[in-house]
Design a binder for these strands. Structure first.
Lengths: 64, 64
DNA sequence: GAGCCATGTCAAGCATGCTTGACAAAAGAC
DNA sequence: GTCTTTTGTCAAGCATGCTTGACATGGCTC
């Protein structure tokens, strides 16, 4: 699963820690998602999508 | 998290086992999602959305 | 009634998502 | 060049997602 989180975060000028706080998760979770270590849960994906004002499909793309 | 899986499955006339096979998961997983026991992973949510030809946001709705 | 299909649910186990705490290294500010 | 911030990563532990196998119930057919 690819995602645009790092790019969207960069547009806002936020650090990983800034984004983590806005999403109410740990900084390590944000880092793991950006570096592709694992995919977010569906609820967290919704939070991310709402924060950046885009549909989930515009931020995440399944490998297949 | 609410979802429309049962309704969409009903429109297609599929049993939970039919849907499970198309999604490549167990019947118990489909049942658990429909009955709200837990949310699907993001990859599974994508599979469901593609199978029914709708965006994730049209099928799943976060509680908050 | 007997048999079949669909659904709900439980238990045990493995895989994934997320946590805190810690440390190292690169990048920027001064 | 030193200080601070940012990012990457590891470990251990808990919560959630998904598995197989099993059993109970209700509806339908015969």
């Amino acid at each position: 699963m690819k995602n645009q989180v790092r790019e969207l975060r960069g547009e806002q000028g936020w650090s990983q820690a800034d984004l983590a706080e806005r999403l109410d998760v740990s900084r390590q979770t944000v880092n793991a998602i950006e570096t592709g270590k694992y995919d977010p849960s569906l609820p967290l994906a919704f939070k991310i999508a709402r924060l950046f004002g885009r549909p989930i499909e515009a931020i995440f793309e399944p490998d297949a």
